[in-house]
Design a protein around this nucleic acid. Structure first.
Lengths: 352, 352
DNA sequence: GAGCAAGCATGAAACGTTTCAACGTCTCGC
DNA sequence: GCGAGACGTTGAAACGTTTCATGCTTGCTC
């Protein structure tokens, strides 16, 4: 674009520059302080003056500069979030919850994905701090929280997302309870030979859900060792789960009559393998997944799954951040997962 | 935090205040300009002075105020995006693509969902402008682009996402080609009695994919009127599609032997209904979806679908924005969708 | 030793707001 | 006809940087 078109009327604003509050003041014939009062809805402005100022604002398309406002008043209306992967439905639901809460207060969200990479996490946090965010929500990519500590000590609030630490406010879901819920459902549905398709125990979620399964057994005075645990390497895909299922069923001895999967993707692979073998779900085998992702209810055999309140997770984390050091603000919130029973584990068959 | 710990030595900084550049200058016995030069690695500072300044910075824990810096220097490393729904996998893949491109240049993304609501879209755009973003990427919630025009005229770049307009740079996918691709695949696979589960034609995507279907027929010198179009009301769910399928199959006359669905969710409902009726896919009916969402390949009968290059869509939009008015910058990019053939439309049965 | 360039350091202006003490101008009550 | 509020409005200081024209020292060249 060359010299470009000037507005028909000359407003005395250098071309290529955005109008500032002083331009509004000049054109409306008032002081800058008055314009500021109009902008901030202070009651000390006469209706006529207010109208005149607003008219000018509309005419020249004035937009207040949040950076200058922030510098002077010190208040910030931006928060940052770093999640593991924005392409993963689990996190986008969380992000959506964050956004919903922020919208209430006119905040804007700056979002980034760490890809579970500690370096990327640090780089993004650094960028966010430079932008001057009021606080950050982080799903930590690793156990090392040193950099987060430093950020907090420098005065930027930090809230952990889907994690727990006694040093930081945090929001998470009780994974032990989730594991117990799934195992209990299978046991109480009359299943006795359980298999557990899990990920490596180095991942907190996997270890805790495993502990939950054990707890369900012990509560019923059963031996947790009776569970056949199949450990899948990361990244866990449906294909991986499918072949692991075939492998499991090829073993000698009785087949399992209930399978608990660490997430719904894995469950999908298991279901596919069972179908290939002509086994009936839930009559021969009951299957339970985890996360209750969008498509769990849409499968040919709708999947029973442990639901995490994803949206609420994000909402609450943002709420803690915005409410700050309020008296009533809870510093640690742990949600309780919920079992959604569908056809894949319906009324127990007589496979036993 | 109450009064907190004071540093042992009195530095002449009011308690409870963060040190500013002038404090560093005073304590190091230099001018503020010099400190600024040290901070920005300018070469006009003698090594001794630099060391002295850095020493003071370290001692009092000075952190530059990014807000003030930005106000003065005017440099922006933020762009905004408003998509229809952050919880929809289609848009999060796009967002991920945007993020990937921005990361290359150290930019940060401010993200918001309009929920297809024009008012929300406007409100969010306003917030983003206040934050002083360098430009915005928008998936328009409606056909009215007046506000976008205004934003652009006031000096903020605008790029349209999954849309087309000759007024704005834009990135989209050829929906006519997508519709044609799906219909051609069914026709060339020997299917002759097609049904098309579509949304209302007021939605651009629906109208264009419909045009694509017609084109495929005309190219083959067939009559497009032979297609049975079923119009589903928004929001389209799997349940809705399921019952619409039953309704269609209850009609007298021969059943369709090929069904094209406006998206994969709809296809899911169709598949479910067909299974309930004991019809075989693809032997009795071939099914084709659209979007190729993550789970399309994971269904019991993997779904043939028209894939949109979602990530690339976002990447390219961000690229256009960042490259700005460069000579080589393309102002309109249209991607070509791709058909991913899976079992749901596999080798044609002899249903004809 | 005059002239000059190079090397450093300086300090004030500028960025676009908010905030606040001060200043009319009315209106009212006496 | 005067003091006291009440009501609107004003203008400048302040926020914490960056930028830049200017000035002061050196050391070098002829």
């Amino acid at each position: 674009m060359a010299t470009g078109e000037e507005p028909a009327d000359d407003l005395g604003i250098p071309p290529g520059k955005k109008p500032a509050i002083k331009d509004v003041a000049r054109l409306a014939g008032v002081a800058v302080g008055t314009v500021s009062n109009v902008l901030n809805d202070r009651p000390t402005v006469s209706p006529e003056t207010r109208e005149r100022v607003l008219e000018v604002i509309r005419r020249i398309g004035y937009v207040p500069n949040a950076t200058a406002r922030r510098l002077r008043s010190g208040e910030v209306t931006t928060i940052g979030a770093v999640v593991l992967d924005l392409a993963n439905p689990f996190f986008t639901e969380i992000a959506r919850g964050i956004e919903d809460r922020l919208a209430q207060d006119g905040y804007v969200l700056m979002l980034a994905s760490s890809d579970e990479n500690l370096d990327r996490e640090r780089r993004y946090l650094d960028l966010l701090l430079q932008q001057g965010v009021r606080g950050v929500l982080v799903t930590p990519a690793g156990a090392d929280l040193d950099h987060l500590r430093e950020i907090r000590d420098r005065g930027t609030d930090v809230v952990l997302l889907d994690a727990y630490s006694r040093e930081f406010p945090s929001v998470g879901v009780d994974d032990v309870a989730g594991g117990a819920l799934a195992a209990a459902h299978l046991l109480d549905g009359g299943r006795s030979r359980l298999a557990f398709f899990n990920g490596p125990h180095t991942v907190r979620q996997c270890a805790e859900r495993h502990a939950g399964v054990e707890r369900a057994f012990l509560t019923r005075e059963l031996d947790p060792a009776a569970v056949t645990e199949v450990t899948l390497p990361a990244p866990m895909t449906a294909e991986l789960a499918e072949s692991a299922t075939h492998e499991l069923l090829d073993r000698p001895g009785p087949h399992p009559d209930g399978i608990f999967c660490i997430n719904d993707i894995v469950a999908l692979g298991v279901l596919r393998a069972l179908r290939e073998r002509g086994m009936s779900v839930p009559d021969d085998v009951a299957v339970v997944g985890y996360d209750d992702v969008m498509f769990a209810s849409m499968l040919t055999t709708p999947l029973t799954s442990v639901r995490q309140p994803k949206r609420q997770l994000g909402w609450t984390a943002a709420d803690i951040l915005l409410r700050g050091d309020d008296e009533g603000a809870e510093r640690h919130v742990e949600f309780v997962p919920e079992l959604v029973v569908r056809a894949s584990s319906g009324a127990a068959g007589d496979a036993g």
